[in-house]
Design a protein around this nucleic acid. Structure first.
Length: 899
RNA sequence: GCCGGUGUGGCGAAAUGGCAGACGCACAGGACUUAAAAUCCUGGGACCAUAAAAAGUCGUGUGGGUUCGAGUCCCACCACCGGCACCA
């Protein structure tokens, strides 16, 4: 009964509304009372902001499991803590509501995905609200709201109408693009412009998943299978929308140093971006009919120092020079191999990876450093999409080249001497000393690289360069339940298709109503079924792809700032206040908590969008999320990952019925460090439930509670919160001054809880409160002031119980006006109250503990040494030995070194 | 293969280089009760010893090292978890 009472009260008061600059603050709101502000105030008049964000959930039909509320509880505790510390706390919640399950359900039943989505959101809302989180629900958003995805489409237009200017090193409006001299006609300029946009169309082979009926981004393909569902993925050439995230590779990498994320997460992003420094080198093709300028093959290598050891070259089967250099004799074999490589699915490519394959083209290239003719092969171990799609093979010092050379009997020439004479040079890939390498002989690898790169540059044969593994982001999906692209397709006079953006005034572009959500018979996306929608009066066609689920989650944290703004995706002043940096506030989101599964997808995409918006002057920080913490997985009671098939899923609803939200919250935090994975144990919930019971019994008079229980069982109205008034406080609670011992217990607890919350050590904070309660239970009288301070510490963890007891305690305080607990100023500890007069000092002999002595705090080093040496438990260990040295750390320990 | 992380009682865990195991679960014993539940109190790393204790020895994945002193720092190895993986 306590929990619904307070949840209702918080709702009615809008207790956790976060106020924007310029927003009307009701004088009756506790925030106004705490900070002495009311009415509309400027950003400068508001207290410093604290933006604490959860990764918003996908509202699935299954509802919450116990993993979701772990992060939410942690952020809620900190939100409440920061509120008590006097911050203006922004703590919002919303829904990542586009997605496949609702669409698949629609395909099966014909029910509109929106209906399914709304039902699921309602269920999630109920579950989340039952946990007593202090979200500002007035800012709730769903990515599927028309008013939300209008702005998602708007941001897409920003990307579409921007290009990355390498000279200024940032994105700029497409209008600033200068055309080359030979770009004259409208069509030429359009083609040039379209090729530069941050959102562009590509015809490249994509990851097609037949089972899901859609393409997937590289990041969504794991081991040749779809991340969702584990279905096979094949490569298929298709026309697709791409986002030029590669233009931001360097910034995405470099700015990791400016944010407070875990090392492992940063490392994952670094690996994904995959920067590598090296050189591009041109190899002339021997005896070639092509014009001299075109008759060369450019390769990328991180080991230019091994150039003397390049004994053959390999092109990817898709390389554009392959048809031109292949000799008549090899034509058939090369064609066959190309077909073989093209039809292989990604999965097969991975499986066949162990065995190298390839075909000789019949052509030769000239090694620029020694003029030797080396054969040119094609092989699928060289990827078309990385570097230049061609390599120089140095079998002696590259594992893959070595395997290939062994299989096809190609020559292997040593050019690096391993530093350790024992190591075989064949297949040695680390740094060493250059040998058999002409003018770089004798140089260690780093110097050899430098010297030969400089030599290549001087001769015009090559230059230093940087490559990234990161690929552009495949941004279109063949789905119904996603944001439609605000794009139309037209034909020019010559009959060529081209695309054009809708004007901003045409937003939002709604998806059409459909009877059938399946793709069309000829493989077109479901939107193509809506012929009325598809065809515009002027003969142009709408784009039928939709955006991926990531689109909505790329910027939701910005919409929360100003969720009901109809004029802009976010107001400028509002954005500046919540994301801005000051002496006390961090730039961007102060704390973002979510699962590690989004390490490279969501977090990379969102950073990319944010950087584009930053370049375009739409937001004020270069990074969206200043501090990020990944909560660990909660495993089932069997220590296995929770899953339906294992039958070890714990439903929070069941725990709530049995133990209540406060115990649930407390247990989730008490299990262990937030970042660690740990198994669920319902018995553990009982432990913290017992603790809350002890808190309750410390405060409450037993007789009155019995009366309440009787009244409750006979009451007709189960939600009659007034019955709670029957419960009286324990007679031992009095408005009297606290004793020194009581103050010491309290302030020890305040110190520990405060420090632990600052460091996000929730489990040890709870244990400190347990220690305090055990202590307080022994007291004959409990001063109101001490218990009130304790309730303030407890409030972030167990807000319902704390509020109820607080409200009763306030009545007992003579004359003091009732303060709203969530806005009561966080207690400060007084270090002077914590000092002991007599302390215990361990005494060691040769590092082993032999006794513990009690001494005055003020005992000097000399006194401690004397006490330790004559200690009777220490004496036996000194017998027959010389005391060589005595280490004395006043207030800490004594260690006697004796031999 | 490469990168990152983690190894502490029966279990979840705690410990600025300074008394290892706080707090909690489970367990055992006791109090209250006709009884049970709830609650309260007590105990608890292992070994050795003992009627019981005290004392003692060992103990933080393994093996070395640094230090007066190591769960904590360094080196090597093992196991598990996560990520990447023909990226030249």
């Amino acid at each position: 009964m306590i929990e619904p009472k307070w949840q209702t009260a918080w709702d009615q008061q809008q207790a956790f509304r976060a106020f924007n600059p310029g927003e009307e603050i009701p004088a009756s709101h506790p925030f106004a009372a705490r900070h002495g502000v009311a009415g509309a105030v400027t950003a400068a008049q508001l207290p410093p902001k604290f933006y604490i964000l959860d990764m918003f959930p996908y509202p699935s039909g299954a509802g919450l499991h116990v993993g979701h509320p772990e992060g939410y509880t942690a952020t809620d505790i900190l939100a409440r803590y920061q509120r008590a510390q006097g911050r203006n706390v922004l703590h919002p919640m919303g829904w990542d509501a586009f997605g496949l399950p609702a669409e698949q359900y629609a395909v099966k039943t014909g029910q509109h995905p929106r209906v399914t989505t709304e039902t699921n959101i309602a269920n999630f809302t109920r579950q989340i609200k039952s946990l007593g989180f202090s979200y500002d629900w007035s800012r709730e958003i769903a990515t599927t709201d028309v008013e939300y995805f209008k702005w998602t489409q708007w941001i897409f237009l920003k990307l579409y109408n921007a290009w990355f200017n390498p000279e200024t090193n940032r994105a700029e409006a497409i209008e600033t693009l200068k055309y080359p001299a030979d770009c004259i006609t409208e069509a030429q300029q359009r083609a040039y412009r379209d090729a530069k946009r941050l959102a562009y169309v590509s015809e490249a082979p994509v990851n097609w998943c037949p089972e899901l009926g859609t393409v997937l981004a590289n990041e969504e393909v794991i081991d040749g299978k779809s991340e969702v569902g584990g279905f096979p993925v094949i490569r298929k050439p298709m026309r697709q929308w791409m986002l030029r995230i590669t233009a931001y590779a360097e910034k995405l990498l470099a700015d990791l140093d400016t944010i407070d994320w875990s090392d492992s997460l940063k490392e994952m992003q670094r690996n994904w971006i995959g920067r590598s420094e090296g050189a591009e080198v041109d190899f002339q093709i021997a005896n070639c009919q092509l014009p001299i300028a075109e008759a060369k093959i450019r390769v990328f290598t991180t080991r230019p120092d091994t150039l003397f050891g390049a004994t053959y070259m390999v092109l990817s089967p898709e390389h554009k020079l392959v048809p031109q250099i292949t000799t008549a004799a090899q034509k058939e074999a090369v064609e066959a191999y190309k077909n073989f490589a093209a039809t292989k699915s990604d999965l097969e490519r991975t499986e066949l990876a162990k065995e190298k394959s390839g075909v000789f083209t019949g052509a030769y290239a000239i090694n620029p450093v020694n003029g030797e003719q080396i054969p040119i092969w094609i092989a699928d171990y060289v990827l078309a999409s990385y570097g230049t799609g061609a390599i120089m093979a140095v079998p002696a010092h590259d594992t893959r080249d070595f395997e290939f050379a062994q299989k096809f009997n190609l020559p292997v020439v040593q050019v690096v001497q391993p530093p350790n004479g024992q190591t075989a040079w064949q297949g040695f890939t680390d740094d060493g000393v250059a040998v058999n390498s002409g003018f770089i002989n004798g140089l260690p690898t780093p110097e050899a690289k430098k010297k030969i790169t400089a030599w290549l540059a001087e001769k015009g044969l090559g230059h230093k360069t940087v490559n990234y593994k990161l690929r552009d982001w495949l941004f279109s999906r063949q789905r119904y339940w996603g944001e439609p692209f605000p794009i139309i397709w037209k034909k020019d006079a010559a009959g060529n298709l081209y695309h054009e953006a809708l004007p901003e005034s045409a937003l939002p572009l709604l998806p059409p109503t459909l009877e059938d959500y399946k793709p069309t018979a000829d493989g077109q996306p479901p939107l193509a079924r809506a012929t009325d929608w598809l065809h515009l009066p002027d003969g142009s066609l709408r784009e039928t792809n939709t955006m991926p689920q990531w689109a909505g989650s790329c910027w939701y944290y910005l919409r929360y700032l100003d969720a009901r703004n109809t004029d802009a995706f976010v107001g400028k002043e509002v954005e500046g206040y919540w994301m801005g940096k000051s002496e006390v506030t961090k730039p961007g989101v102060d704390l973002y908590v979510g699962g590690t599964e989004h390490a490279v997808l969501h977090l990379l995409y969102a950073r990319f969008w944010h950087k584009v918006l930053f370049d375009l002057g739409q937001v004020s920080t270069a990074e969206p999320f200043y501090k990020l913490v990944n909560q660990g997985l909660i495993l089932g009671e069997d220590g296995q990952k929770m899953s339906k098939s294992r039958g070890n899923v714990v439903n929070p609803d069941d725990i709530l019925v049995e133990y209540g939200a406060d115990a649930f919250r407390l247990y989730e935090m008490f299990m262990g460090p937030l970042q660690d994975s740990k198994p669920w144990n319902t018995k553990g919930v009982e432990g913290v439930y017992r603790f809350l019971g002890r808190v309750w019994r410390l405060f409450v008079d037993e007789t009155s509670e019995t009366e309440f229980e009787q009244a409750e069982t006979t009451a007709t109205d189960k939600a009659n919160f007034k019955l709670l008034a029957l419960i009286a406080l324990n007679a031992s609670i009095k408005d009297v001054p606290a004793t020194p011992a009581q103050l010491k217990a309290l302030h020890t607890c305040i110190k520990k809880v405060t420090e632990d919350l600052d460091a996000m050590r929730f489990n040890t904070a709870i244990s400190a409160m347990m220690v305090f309660i055990s202590e307080a239970m022994k007291w004959e009288t409990q001063p109101v002031s001490v218990l009130a301070a304790f309730l303030q510490l407890l409030q972030p963890f167990a807000p319902h119980l704390a509020e109820e007891l607080w409200s009763k305690l306030q009545a007992l305080k003579a004359g003091a006006p009732a303060t709203s607990l969530p806005y009561a100023a966080w207690p400060k500890y007084d270090a002077a109250l914590l000092v002991e007069d007599v302390i215990e000092i361990p005494v060691q002999v040769n590092g082993k503990l032999r006794d513990v002595i009690k001494v005055a705090l003020t005992a000097t080093a000399a006194e401690l040494e004397a006490l330790a040496l004559k200690n009777e438990n220490v004496q036996p260990y000194l017998a027959g030995k010389n005391v060589k040295k005595v280490i004395v750390l006043p207030k800490k320990l004594v260690n006697i070194v004796a031999v």
